[in-house]
Design a protein around this nucleic acid. Sequence first.
DNA 1: CTGAAAGCGCTAACAT
DNA 2: ATGTTAGCGCTTTCAG
Lengths: 364, 364
Amino acid sequence: MVKITDVARHANVSASTVSYALSGKRPISEETRRRIEDSIRELGYRPHAGARSLASSRSQVIGLVLPLRKGMHMPVVMQFATSVATAAREHDHDVLLLTHNEGEEGINRVARSRLADAFIIMDVEMDDRRLPLLRGLDQPSVLIGFPSDPAGLTCIDLDFAGAGEACVEHLASLGHRTVALVGSPPEVYVRGTGFARRVAAGFTAAADRLGLRSSVHPCPESPAAAQAMAEQLLHEQPELSGVVIHNEPVTQPLIAAFQTMGLRVPQDLSVVAICPDETAEQAPLPISSVSIPSAEIGTGAVDLLMAKLAEHDGVPETTTLPAALTERATSAAVSSVTARRPEDRLEHTHTPGSPGRIPRSPSG
Amino acid sequence: MVKITDVARHANVSASTVSYALSGKRPISEETRRRIEDSIRELGYRPHAGARSLASSRSQVIGLVLPLRKGMHMPVVMQFATSVATAAREHDHDVLLLTHNEGEEGINRVARSRLADAFIIMDVEMDDRRLPLLRGLDQPSVLIGFPSDPAGLTCIDLDFAGAGEACVEHLASLGHRTVALVGSPPEVYVRGTGFARRVAAGFTAAADRLGLRSSVHPCPESPAAAQAMAEQLLHEQPELSGVVIHNEPVTQPLIAAFQTMGLRVPQDLSVVAICPDETAEQAPLPISSVSIPSAEIGTGAVDLLMAKLAEHDGVPETTTLPAALTERATSAAVSSVTARRPEDRLEHTHTPGSPGRIPRSPSG
DNA sequence: CTGAAAGCGCTAACAT
DNA sequence: ATGTTAGCGCTTTCAG
């Protein structure tokens, strides 16, 4: 194995000079730097990561904790992970993969053994059990998602409340008066994952503010559940004309179910999703959507982490990425009387005036 | 930071005794071991990973190279990654995440800096450019997938050829005489990813052997492509009664397209997929399938790697996981004359006798 | 602008 | 069964 002393000898300098040439922590003459670089290349030198970490107390590794639980959409997780890995490399760091199932102990182990010198935690819950641990660590961390109390932490996420609002505002601007949110599976709400609740809160708030009737429906991630949900919605709310979907695997099946039941999208029913742009664009009928920018969140998290590692102060506790809605083919202005043709539905039809259960009525 | 000498002092032993107690590399008296363990717990000692790696030339980290390219199904990749991470932890190792887009350089960097002391490479191509590098590394590696020449390497994968065969055998046993394979996107074949070609080879070989008509159809990963594929298949091969799908995102849309076109599954058309069990089970109509056992492949890869790290010889160059077909609701025996009703199809109908293009005729 | 030298915390001979 | 000691390869004072 070629080591720093080999390079030093070959370049006729001391080992420390090679080290400094590599780190840039002190000025090196042009001439010397060139000789060193040549030697490094010629000998094929690579610093030993362990030695470096021992001497500098910096491993150049960031620990990335990914969720594996149900209700997480894996393509999004993967895109996020790769964007973190790529961004980390641009800052000369590598990424250690930790899974949520090792729990707090995994983070603790990696932190205290100094295997990683910073952490990115995905899928943070409102009252996440890892928070006290993270606050007490020597190493800085960045959370994806906002816990109830972000004090002393650094968090970044899409403005999910804003996303919920943007969807409602879009539908309202198109003239829709009754809207429904088909959300994440029930367990996601139950375990207090912030984004699910925030979408619902933003959705409901905007509907109330704009005087729309609204209802929220957690939905399991299966085509069957999507089918049942479509039937339930049309059954209970004949005047429903706008649906917001925040549940990736259900998006396509739900739209298909509506169509099968005789509703034309967007003529009879407008649909807006909160999902990655890729999903929205690739659908048979491109979906109007608020983008979940996993890649930006990933690089943003890395940037925040690097700022903290550099001991920049003024790293904000919370960073919120603005929600932007892109209009595509699934949303349109409500049309006149002929718009809804309940008599075409396969079953459970209603006459236009007969109201189903109305879970919420507008407050303002 | 509490270090090994602190523990040694606290337990009234030498540092090396603590080290040996931890590694188990030499016998320690029951009494001493207990004292050491107590001290470790009391002081909250964790060995410094870098120091350990420097002194022992073992980082206890394995590098995992994941693909991000199109045509890879992310849920499968994630499940694989998490099973690797979990299995690695059981052997006291951590996992460093490398993305294929860093290419050979990423592996080289991590290997030569001794950040990782073994590698698992996913999505290996027939003539993978990383092979020479891997063969020359100090560190052992395990490949997921079989390159054309596995000599000097260790590879593990599902028996994809066997999977293709099993599907055909199943369909043949049900009386089907004309079968089609809807495969991975064209680019996957083009870049020589082994599994896609092996499925096709096994499929074709079994069809030939059993005297079935067969054809192979690469298919892009979009619902639109699935729809087009369904139309094309029925148009060209009116006598088609068995379809094998090896293209995860297309599976569901393709079945739906067939149904929309008036075919009943499995009465008019049997469908068999090669996909994770989870996908097959969760489909609206549970799909008869050969399982892609990502988790087993992941733990298998780790086990092979650990054997190599332990310098066990006799680690096999290739490990093939047997293909097992599970019969579910999408396959059934061909029914009699009334089975196919081409006159019900939405368009491009054919009279029963008129053959479409027959891409392959049986050789035996 | 460059060198010399003292560790970083741990493991693994080599002792006994 | 345990202790002593010499590094592992690098960074970073401290000196010049």
